[in-house]
Amino acid sequence: MYSGIVAMALMAVFAVVFLYALHRLTAVAASPVEVLPAQSGWMPQEHALSRFHVRWYMASIVFLAFDVEMLFMYPWAVIVIERGLSAVVEMFLFLGALLVAVVWAWREGAFRWA
């Protein structure tokens, strides 16, 4: 069942390797040149790799809590037809509670830049 996917992955790796190999032949030089980061020509005052301040950390907390729900959602989707209305009611009560929490978080400003 997964042989097709493995074959596709091999194809993709082949395509990437092919492009890099072709580039070695056609580029004006095969080795990369080392440069300063683009800052309109100014010397960088420090390395960019640093403790980057994430402005949306609250949204990511809500996201992580919410996306656990998807674990249930996919298997549930398959059996709605079999289980009928009870499954629908149970799942959407569950989702409704989560959406209430989301609306609450929205009012707290969780989806804004800190």
Binding site: L19, H23, T26, V28, A29, P32, V33, E34, V35
Partner: peptide, 10 residues
């Protein structure tokens, strides 16, 4: 394909 690759310092 003709252009050279580059890397930034560090």
């Amino acid at each position: 394909l003709r252009q050279r690759r580059r890397t930034v310092v560090a």
